[in-house]
Design a protein around this nucleic acid. Structure first.
Lengths: 154, 154
DNA sequence: TGAGATTCCATTGACGCCCATGGTTGCCCA
DNA sequence: TGGGCAACCATGGGCGTCAATGGAATCTCA
């Protein structure tokens, strides 16, 4: 399984280009579309990122239930599709982040690619630091319930 | 089942390389990714280590539902993913520990690999000694309970 | 024809790969 | 049973390759 792991902070040059981390590109190398999909996060000042295969799964999941009255989940999926951008990378592995996602995440000079397993996020480094500290504090507070509840081991 | 057993203290060379104990490598030899996964421990000045299969289980658990509003458990998983590093070893079985985990565990010259069964930890040897002494003292203090609670011995 | 966007090339610094060494362990055979 | 040999593991260092980055050149559409 291809996974997005770890955090990489790369520079945004004058033309707005950012290198997609090599390991992320490798995780997507099997796809027909050589690039990434991004959309502004609904819950934080970050950019959500994934591969086209993830979108395809999302589409499949949405249409699996022929719900005529769309659920909140379907609404959400619709939002994702409409606000997404497909960014193909150049021969050097760089993409240009669209205006709207740049502003949404307040990205200017640097962009931090944060692995989340099957997806990833892009943050302005300082904002990421703050957000991580918060998440860590929350996790610590809930420690008794959370402590690395490991999915069952085979 | 592959297990990480015993403690090995190896040298960190000028380039930051450390040999992963041969027995640990053997325990991971069945994996497609030839290397280890490390992330700073949330509870102590140590580095947590495991194989990629651990991350894959984590990813499977997290994305079982396309839950876009993450729960606390997912937050924790995200913390792990974002702070993890996939370290492939070189033909000699060495890895380079990233800057941030080195600092977190205060590792400079030597690194102690501590088997913990299905996972392992990496410590600065002196810190490990202190930590072990502490753990031993705690165990001694609780001895009466521990012995009473002990399941049958084979 | 000009501005923005895309492709191409060049630099540098990190990382992975190769080879060499030494020491320990385990094995084989006399 | 003891000596010697072979294998393996930890370690050191040199070198080539690749990723990230910057800038120039080319293309495209208005």
């Amino acid at each position: 399984m291809a996974l997005f792991v770890s955090t990489y902070t790369n520079k945004v040059d004058k033309k707005g280009r950012v290198s997609v981390p090599a390991s992320f590109r490798a995780a997507l190398s099997h796809q027909s579309f050589q690039g990434i999909v991004v959309y502004p996060s609904f819950t934080s000042a970050a950019v959500e990122g994934c591969g086209t295969d993830f979108l395809e799964e999302l589409a499949a999941a949405t249409s699996a239930s022929f719900d005529l009255f769309s659920t909140e989940q379907d609404d959400l999926n619709t939002l994702i599709f409409s606000s997404s951008h497909q960014l193909s990378w150049d021969p050097e592995g760089r993409v240009v982040l669209p205006e709207d996602v740049m502003t949404h995440a307040a990205i200017t000079e640097q962009a931090a690619f944060v692995g989340k397993g099957r997806t990833f996020q892009i943050w302005e480094p300082e904002a990421l630091k703050a957000h991580t500290a918060e998440a860590r504090a929350r996790a610590m507070a809930n420690r008794p319930q959370l402590i690395l509840r490991r999915p069952e081991v085979k």
